[in-house]
Design a protein around this nucleic acid. Structure first.
Length: 347
DNA sequence: CGTTTTTGACCAGCGC
DNA sequence: GCGCTGGTCAAAAACG
């Protein structure tokens, strides 16, 4: 591992409250081009292609669109996570995070020993405590209402119940992506339904909804104001459908890795997940042969590469296990993760 | 013409 | 209660 990569790892664009990381899940797949800390360097290196799809990255390739979530072991007791991914792309990125995690349950406190550049764990704990207080408060209010009786109270009660139901949020998973474009292609079709200015940030936040009927998955896309080259994509909910067969300028379900990712020795920032037990695996060796030769960057026309990729035999990694999250390699069969040594040493 | 994006308005939660 | 902020709605505009 290079020093640059180390720097990249410890770059912390989320120590502020911009991401609301304590509610979310952030995963980090930083690549070998640690430009997060040095964006002054022009992209003069060859960007072989700049299109990728996490759809396949995080799905096993099986037809079970919920498999990744299952494999990831996300449950009501799972702490939030946040991925960060360097894509170094100009073309859309595919990122099927929503389907990846396919979550339905609420998040619960994260393990307190999670070392985090994101400061998510302690914040999460505090937040949950706060949530609990709020919940207690509400319960007391409801109790009062019931005890006092009366029609008006009933109405308020109903309203309150509705509120509570409405407030139940799907868990969220946020990805950091080093990208020049905001909305990253991820294999699903999204309709933008809102855009808001973000406090303390010159960059707006966009709100998208999955266009598939009865699918309630949403995602938010915003650019980090601390590192404008980084896009923060937050998924909420679980897709109840497969990838659309027809996609705009995309290959349905196709997964194309950018070289930066492929050579990334993809690593996971594990602090939110308990931070530690990633075995040392190499990633580079699993790049499908000839993968770099497809025509990404030319806009579309990448079916051949997908075909090639899909035909590639990827080395399964059985040992990769994330505490509380299950086997990540089931989700990311083409990738191995290197553990940042420092993450082993809990502060 | 159907779909998607834009954008101002609206609402809810929260802190003061 | 008021103001701020995040999130959503929905009509109009833009797009393919």
């Amino acid at each position: 591992m290079s020093e640059d990569q180390r720097q990249l790892y410890y770059h912390d664009p989320f120590h502020d409250d911009q991401l609301q990381a304590n509610h979310e899940t952030l995963f980090s797949f930083f690549g070998p081009n640690p430009t997060l800390t040095d964006d002054s360097s022009p992209p003069n290196h060859q960007r072989v292609h700049n299109y990728m799809g996490l759809t396949r990255l995080f799905s096993t390739g099986s037809s079970d669109y919920n498999t990744p979530a299952t494999n990831f072991g996300y449950s009501s007791s799972s702490p939030p996570l946040l991925f960060a991914l360097e894509v170094d792309q100009k073309q859309p990125l595919a990122a099927d995070i929503g389907n990846l995690f396919g979550v339905t349950a609420e998040t619960t406190p994260v393990t307190p020993n999670s070392s985090s550049a994101l400061s998510t764990s302690t914040d999460q704990a505090a937040d949950d405590e706060h949530d609990q207080l709020q919940q207690d408060k509400k319960e007391n209010q409801l109790k009062d209402l019931v005890e006092n009786g009366g029609d008006s109270s009933k109405k308020v009660l109903i309203k309150q119940k509705k509120k509570d139901e409405k407030k139940k949020r799907e868990p969220r998973f946020a990805f950091m992506t080093k990208s020049e474009i905001d909305h990253l292609e991820d294999g699903y079709r999204w309709r933008k339904y809102g855009q808001k200015a973000v406090k303390n940030s010159p960059y707006p936040r966009s709100y998208y909804r999955c266009t598939t009927q009865k699918c309630t998955v949403k995602k938010r896309v915003e650019r980090s104001y601390q590192d404008p080259s980084t896009v923060i994509t937050t998924y909420e909910g679980k897709h109840n459908h497969h990838l659309p067969s027809t996609l705009r300028g995309n290959v349905g379900g196709g997964m194309l890795y950018p070289p930066s990712m492929m050579a990334a020795q993809g690593r996971l920032m594990t602090e939110a997940a308990g931070g530690s037990s990633f075995p040392q695996h190499e990633f580079l060796g699993q790049i499908p042969h000839g993968f770099y030769n497809f025509g990404g960057g030319h806009g579309g026309g990448n079916g051949g590469a997908v075909s090639h990729y899909q035909q590639s035999t990827l080395t399964p990694i059985q040992q990769l296990q994330i505490p509380d999250y299950g086997l990540l390699q089931d989700m990311v069969p083409s990738m191995t993760f290197k553990q940042e040594p420092e993450f082993n040493q809990q502060a």
